[in-house]
């Protein structure tokens, strides 16, 4: 495990923000850390970077205890927390050069990064004059500068346009698949995580509600039978009378929990026989968006 926390807790005053969090981030994964705003994502990230003092529990990164190996661990991490930390009176390039000086990285690396995050043309412009998306890209560039083994990014696509979001996503996927990095990325948008993450942790009110691979997440979503039928309300009432549960009634379709193939055939036959012509019938997975809402609302 690249990140391994046990029973991690943190309070702001008397208010618990993170409760008994046990994160397991495997090497070579893109770990999507999902949760609504205010769920405790940024606090968790600050705990992982030793910016906040852990009240309870332990943090191991690269198999080493964080507090006693702080500098060795931090030298392998690149991070972006909340809005990017940028000196607005310096140019984009100077921001990178300053960090390169601190991290003892060669200046040629700065040009590579400018190219990578597509800021080459704006390199000599004051960072204060950058757009939100450019600042975000510079922040990601700063995190990548030392070529770290682990990237911790807090909402990295905030403020980016669709093209920017796709670029960052592809960059992260490339870093993991070709350069053997591990990425821990937080977001409040499931759709974003769904497209790139290999592993997911869902947090709400400081508690971890789910953790596992994307496939695990999909597996716990209950399959449904999606039935396109004329007169959905009557058809639904008919099915309920026949002893079926109906989850959803829409203008053009109804959904019923999936049990088996024969159950699907039975429903099809019943509806057709009783003058509810079926236009289509198929099995679907509950979409993750709904699942995410279900998981976070249950808590």
């Amino acid at each position: 495990m690249v990140i391994d926390t046990q029973g991690l807790s943190f309070n702001f005053g008397s208010q618990p923000v993170v409760r008994a969090l046990s994160l397991q981030v495997p090497e070579g994964s893109i770990y999507g850390f999902l949760g609504p705003n205010g769920a405790g994502k940024t606090t968790t990230i600050k705990l992982l970077l030793n910016l906040l003092k852990t009240d309870q529990g332990s943090i191991h990164i690269f198999g080493k205890e964080l507090k006693s190996n702080r500098i060795a661990i931090l030298s392998e991490i690149g991070s972006l927390i909340e809005q990017p930390a940028i000196y607005s009176h310096l140019t984009g390039k100077e921001n990178l050069l300053n960090r390169a000086l601190l991290l003892q990285v060669a200046e040629t690396r700065v040009d590579e990064i400018l190219e990578l995050v597509q800021l080459k043309n704006a390199a000599n412009k004051k960072a204060g004059k950058y757009s939100l998306g450019m600042k975000q890209r510079l922040g990601i560039g700063l995190a990548l500068l030392s070529d770290p083994k682990l990237l911790i990014l807090d909402e990295p696509t905030n403020g980016l346009d669709p093209n920017g979001i796709i670029e960052i996503r592809e960059l992260l996927i490339r870093l993991v698949s070709q350069h053997n990095k591990t990425v821990f990325v937080s977001s409040h948008l499931l759709s974003e995580i769904e497209r790139m993450a290999t592993h997911v942790g869902i947090i709400d009110h400081g508690e971890l509600l789910f953790q596992g691979s994307i496939a695990d997440l999909q597996a716990i979503s209950q399959p449904q039978v999606h039935i396109e039928v004329e007169n959905t309300v009557d058809a639904a009432n008919f099915l309920i009378k026949q002893g079926f549960a109906v989850n959803e009634i829409n203008d053009d379709h109804i959904t019923v929990p999936y049990a088996s193939k024969t159950q699907m055939a039975e429903i099809n036959a019943l509806l057709n026989r009783n003058n509810y012509p079926v236009f289509s019938i198929h099995k679907t997975q509950k979409d993750l968006e709904k699942l995410f809402l279900d998981i976070t609302q249950k808590a």
């Binding site: 600050k46 030793n50 910016l51 500098i71 931090l74 030298s75 809005q83 930390a85 607005s88 991290l103």
Partner: peptide
Amino acid sequence: NIEHKAETWKTLFTLPIS
């Protein structure tokens, strides 16, 4: 103030420097 203004305390204290 240069660090307060740029919100860079967090980056200074996540550098691999004591």
